[in-house]
Design a protein around this nucleic acid. Structure first.
Lengths: 182, 182
DNA sequence: TTGAGGCCCATAGTGTCCCATGATACTCCA
DNA sequence: TGGAGTATCATGGGACACTATGGGCCTCAA
């Protein structure tokens, strides 16, 4: 219970952005910090991002478990569930990371995300994204412009205050991170 | 009381301003008092400040956990959330502090904040900022001028009174700091 | 048999660890 | 009260470990 120190310890989040190369065999190194965020597993799931941004989205077994649980919550035969299961479960590649931390991207994935020789890995909290570097630059600029807007900053500030307030009032519900993982 | 004490214990605040040098390897010493405020963690997150002031903003795992909680609070697919996640999570560098308290600034960060050989660390309550010393001087002057304005002082006085009042009425939520921390 | 994927080893570069140094602030005692 | 000893801090630099990447070989399936 050493305050925040312990809490943060179990933190498995994909943070930051890294660039790496696709070699002649179509292999890409997953950034070391992302491998750490995967928590030791060597299975990677990747699919074309749902939002149409043209990047790949992916994560490890933990993320897939989250999605499975989430999809299960949707009404069994709803069009939404069918669509999402098809898109995420059926549509994702199930890749195995080799012992030097690389995965092999299939041709379909490469084509779908317009990847050629270099890629950008972008952290997205519970998942990460794989981008064509040029597209990523555009995307990042657009997001930065959006983030700089008055309304956006205000929304952030507001939400931050709420979190702060709840923390200060001792709400255990706000344990930001999972517990220990000694 | 107990609960509060615990929470506050991890609540270390970044206060004051320090200057330090970037060595030939691109390393910078984090001021000792900031290291203490980090609560023992050795992971530092840094990103270009959202407000366009041209400094870097950063903190430790506790701060990142706060932001994670904050971002999670925003509507899942809102443009604001996407933008902020990209800007803060993907846009931040995930650095490791060595055991003498130094971090290595990447070239992008150096360029983005216009850093060369010396930097200013400025406390910002639960985060800190890293400035080009000259820019920081300008910024400080501008802030001093703003702070001297009638409206600003009035706002301060007003808010202070509210806090005083709430404290007097026994609201434990306002206990920001704890004394016993031997 | 041929191509692809998996596994292993090799290597360059960079980041991290560790030790050392000088400077400053602080403590303690005469 | 002043000075020596001590602790802490910022900084420098060498050695090493790890990461990203390249490439060879083996296996398996068509």
């Amino acid at each position: 219970m050493r305050g925040l120190g312990r809490i943060s310890q179990g933190w498995r989040v994909f943070v930051s952005t890294y660039e790496s190369a696709i070699d002649a065999k179509g292999r890409v190194s997953i950034p070391a910090s992302f491998r750490a965020a995967l928590g030791g597993g060597n299975r990677i799931f990747l699919w074309l991002a749902l939002d149409g941004s043209g990047c790949l989205e992916g994560g490890g077994e933990a993320l897939m478990a989250m999605y499975r649980a989430t999809l299960t919550r949707l009404a069994p035969h709803s069009p939404a569930r069918k669509a999402l299961v098809t898109r995420i479960i059926a549509g994702s590649a199930d890749l195995k990371m080799d012992d030097t931390g690389r995965i092999k991207l299939s041709d379909e994935l490469m084509k779908a995300a317009n990847l050629t020789d270099r890629v950008k890995f972008a952290g997205n909290m519970d998942s990460f994204q794989i981008w064509n570097p040029d597209r990523h630059a555009e995307h990042f600029d657009a997001m930065a412009a959006e983030a700089a807007k008055e309304d956006t900053l205000e929304a952030l500030g507001h939400a931050y205050s709420e979190v702060l307030h709840q923390q200060a009032s001792g709400s255990a519900a706000l344990k930001l991170v999972d517990g220990d993982d000694s």
